[in-house]
Design a protein around this nucleic acid. Structure first.
Lengths: 191, 191
DNA sequence: TTTCCCACCTGCTAA
DNA sequence: TTTAGCAGGTGGGAA
């Protein structure tokens, strides 16, 4: 499954959230670091977020020790929209793929935020405080959506007699089935 | 893949293997400890056997030191059917999953014994001597096989007209299907 | 390179 | 309903 990973980053020092937004304080300006449009893998069973290398090395640098250690380090983020939730992620470097990843803790974030492929997760900071936020992708979920590959399966005819009366047969998991007369002529399997 | 793990344990002091079976001696009675029906993971690429916690703590207790140490300890088993083979396994506790595992040496046992998922591995002892044995799963892959949980699914009638002509309908993965007239009245799903 | 081993991690599920 | 157990995984590294 191929999905383009889009990264958008600002170097601006724009204050986020307008005015005194967010939860009380610190007073320091909130600076956008970067965003990532998450891939299916980022929200899937791999339970990890790949942090693009140039952003990782700029904003979340690992010392030589942490870079070598599988344990990496722990990054704590506050919820950018306020609330009490904080998110603790293990952050480390995978030398095998030469990539920076957020692992432990990430799957909980995905679940709690109902994060889906195509959504955007954004990171910002105010001094030493780190914030994480996310937003939904633009709504449209059409059959031509790029988020899931579609395979059209023509249903095989396995029984001449039945076929002659217009019924399509299908052997599924060892069970012989017939499609209803008004069933579509093919199955669309979404991966 | 869901596979039922069946554990059978005896506390009896029955001598195993009948008479003076096994290889010469010791004289001590051979006591069954426990058995495990191995899972696909136990005989697969993970190269480890998960020892169910209650059996592990009863028969192969690890001292605090060995429990904390990643090195664990070494368990040596003799072949319960005699022969010269002895099996040295590393046995340790994985704190992350809170489980007891046999790791190093296990894959060799799996290979040499041609152990497959569903087979049973059994452990017994005679005094301080430990024995390991295994046996094939019951050959039959019949619907009543105990090696996989069976769920009998009565097919729902969803369409009166179709039902009246003797056809059973089933909605599967969002697709309306009809069973062939000669299909069984229920599905046995083997897990 | 490939295989095995190691120390982790997590979702599912039965109790 | 919550939770402990474990089956099924990961990347890293040693051999």
């Amino acid at each position: 499954m191929a999905m383009t990973t889009t990264i958008v980053a600002w170097e601006s020092r724009n204050q986020q959230g307008g005015g005194g937004g967010g939860h009380g304080g610190g007073g320091e300006r909130r600076e956008h670091m970067f965003e990532k449009v998450v891939t299916p893998s980022d929200v899937g069973k791999l339970n990890r977020l790949v942090v693009p290398k140039h952003h990782a090395e700029k904003y979340f640098p690992l010392g030589p020790a942490a870079r070598s250690s599988p344990a990496g380090t722990v990054l704590c983020f506050e919820d950018a929209r306020g609330g009490d939730s904080t998110w603790r992620f293990r952050y480390s470097y995978w030398s095998s793929s030469q990539s920076y990843v957020i692992t432990k803790g990430w799957s909980r974030f995905v679940r709690d935020k109902r994060l889906a492929a195509g959504d955007t997760v954004s990171f910002c900071r105010a001094g030493a405080r780190l914030f994480i936020d996310c937003r939904r992708r633009a709504a449209a979920v059409s059959p031509s959506s790029p988020s899931g590959a579609l395979i059209k399966v023509q249903l095989p005819v396995v029984d001449e007699k039945e076929a002659s009366c217009g019924r399509r047969c299908l052997r599924l998991f060892g069970v012989d089935l017939q499609l209803r007369a008004d069933a579509p002529p093919a199955l669309d399997l979404q991966l």
